[in-house]
Design a protein around this nucleic acid. Structure first.
Length: 166
DNA sequence: GCCAACGTTGGC
DNA sequence: GCCAACGTTGGC
């Protein structure tokens, strides 16, 4: 019974916001990837890593967020299509994400695979999120919040999707 | 285990 | 390119 319960709760769909600089990796890049799927590598923050390792599940839905660009905001939806697995870029000396403290034997950083789901018909800008009362609790508008992977609740997720024209 | 120095993030 | 906020590192 306990097993069933924990199994069920682990299956309940969760929602996330994931940030990427479009000059590095945009939602277009994701859409044009093989199988419209890509590994979310380069996460080098423990809290963000722990979300991937401990809290993400297959089929969780993701708000794809463009940061540090002309039009900052949520541009579409993706979904989680793998469990967390070691981020090999951490032990690739040629990678900008190289981390000598991570190794194949003892990986420190992990990634998940993300699959493109849809583009919004328009960007839901950061300013718009700030201006929307029901989205005022989103981490992305909290002062000093820089996490590149953030949990989002179901109503926030659906509100952002509606604003994005879905 | 404290905390100063340093590096990074990311909006502006 | 500025800089505030935050995370990490490393000496002590």
């Amino acid at each position: 019974m306990e097993l069933l319960k924990s199994h069920c709760s682990s299956m309940s769909k969760k929602y996330w916001l994931m940030k990427s600089e479009p000059s590095e990796f945009s939602i277009k890049d994701l859409k044009s990837s093989k199988d419209q799927t890509a590994g979310w590598d380069g996460v080098r923050n423990y809290q963000a890593r722990n979300f991937m390792m401990n809290d993400m599940s297959l089929e969780d839905e993701v708000l794809f967020y463009h940061s540090n660009c002309d039009e900052i905001g949520v541009v579409g939806v993706a979904k989680v299509v793998s469990a967390a697995y070691p981020d090999s870029s951490a032990w690739d000396k040629k990678s900008k994400y190289y981390d000598p403290k991570s190794s194949k034997e003892n990986p420190r950083w992990f990634r998940v695979d993300i699959k493109w789901v849809k583009d919004f018909s328009r960007t839901v800008t950061l300013q718009e999120i700030k201006d929307t009362e029901s989205l005022s609790e989103m981490k992305v508008v909290q002062r000093g919040q820089r996490l590149s992977i953030q949990p989002v609740n179901a109503s926030e997720f659906s509100t952002v999707c509606e604003l994005g024209g879905i």
